[in-house]
Amino acid sequence: MHYSLSDMILDLVQNSIEAGSRLIRLDLNRENNFLTVRLTDDGCGMTEGELEKAKDPFYSDGIKHKHRKVGLGIPFLIQTVEQTDGLFDIHSEKNKGTSLNIRFNLGHYDTPPEGDWPGLFMQTLCFEGDYELIINRMITGENGSESAYTLQRTELQDVLGDFNESGAMLLLRDYLRSQEEDLSV
């Protein structure tokens, strides 16, 4: 099982990419002790039956890993949320896309640490393939003040070119860290 929340989100974004999505949106909003994560994609989606199976840890479609009998991304997430007074909601429509709404209770003793968000963003931006990813990261303060930044994959690719070239990746890392460090409420 993953150590941090950001690593759990990585699996979900990877699911969206592997579902052939052209547009993926990831919104993260931390308000007081709650972190709300919303992920929507326009990938292949799932039927009601497939969606139920996705929640079952002892099910895998066997396409990505031929001999594997388990699929743990979503089941572990549901388990974590249930154990820590969070919320989890998933909707999917075949050939339309999937959306997830998650609320982590950061104040709960058993909620995993948040992890490295700029590191997660770099990983999700650097997968191969031609997909658009828009990330909105926001922190809302107690007095309602908001601090936020937005990342758009195509815009960053336009500036940096191929992210896999080490010079581009170094600048991308600096850029993402500087956005995160600037957040304040």
């Binding site: 500036v159 010079g167 581009a168 600048l171 850029y175 860290r177 500087s178 956005q179 600037d182």
Partner: peptide, 21 residues
């Protein structure tokens, strides 16, 4: 590190590329 703008990022990338060439 101060918050980097996209324009600053572009400038850094261009100077990096010039160096590479």
């Amino acid at each position: 590190m101060a918050k980097m703008t996209l324009e600053e990022l572009r400038k850094l990338r261009n100077s990096q590329k010039g160096e590479m060439e």
